[in-house]
Simulated scan of single mutants.
Amino acid sequence: MKVAVLGTNDRAALVVVRQLALEVSIDEVIIVRHTKQRSLACVSKYTHKSVYFNFDTPDVSTLIHLLQDEKIDLILPINDITSLFVIHHYSSLNANFTLASPTPSSYYQAIDKWAIQEMCDGKTLKYPVSQLIEQGSRLENRDISEEYVYLKTRNSVVYHEEKYKNMMYKS
């Protein structure tokens, strides 16, 4: 079996590549990176090949052709950007490959940081008292309280103006 690991977060992708190498059913691991710069997973002795793909492209057919040319059996998205890309193109990718990814509805539930609190009962699963900072509002103009966790966005990655944007708050 040939596996395509989408995305190249250094730690996560390297751990995944090493773990996949232990599976006897896996013949080759190919990294499809979302940055032009190669990561540690790209040069690992367990990685057969590393290729770049611009995940901001709205046309999934280029990626499908690339993966078909490599005779990929399984797609494994490794980071937020590639996971969101797979979910946006779930039907097309799922028709051609096996996806190690949740269904779109499950994925959107899992990445919604604000909605997670609805699943927490306060006893077994606790969620910190939080405030969501609405888009366009400025944190500097608010009275900051140490009793709250402030969420800049509900999701860490959004698709806006035909680009995937990492929305993680950077201090």
Score class of each variant (00 low, 15 high):
I26E: 03
Q37Y: 06
H48P: 00
Q68Y: 07
D27H: 11
N79G: 07
S61D: 11
V32K: 08
Q68L: 11
R33I: 01
F55V: 07
D73R: 02
V29K: 00
P77C: 11
Q68M: 08
L76D: 03
V51Y: 05
A13E: 04
E23Q: 14
H34C: 09
D56V: 10
K45S: 06
N54C: 11
D56P: 10
R18D: 13
C42W: 02
T35P: 00
S25N: 13
R18C: 07
K49H: 07
K36C: 02
R18I: 02
A41R: 09
L74C: 04
L22S: 09
P58H: 00
T35N: 01
S25P: 07
R18N: 15
P77D: 11
I64R: 06
E28M: 04
H34S: 12
Q19F: 14
L14N: 15
P58W: 00
I75W: 01
H65Q: 12
A41T: 03
Y46F: 12
K36P: 06
I78F: 08
K36S: 06
E23V: 14
I26L: 03
V43R: 10
V43F: 06
A13R: 05
S39Y: 13
T57V: 13
L14F: 10
D73H: 03
L40F: 11
H65F: 06
A13I: 09
I72T: 14
L63N: 13
P77R: 11
L40S: 13
D59C: 09
Y46M: 11
S39G: 15
D56K: 03
D69G: 08
S44V: 03
L14Y: 12
V16K: 15
D27V: 08
A21V: 10
N79W: 04
P77W: 12
E70F: 01
S25W: 09
F53L: 04
R38H: 12
L22M: 12
V15C: 06
V16Q: 12
S39A: 15
I78K: 05
S50Y: 02
D69I: 06
Q37F: 07
H65G: 08
K36R: 11
I26H: 01
S44E: 07
H48G: 00
V24G: 08
P58M: 00
V51R: 15
H65S: 10
V16F: 13
V43E: 03
I64L: 11
I26T: 11
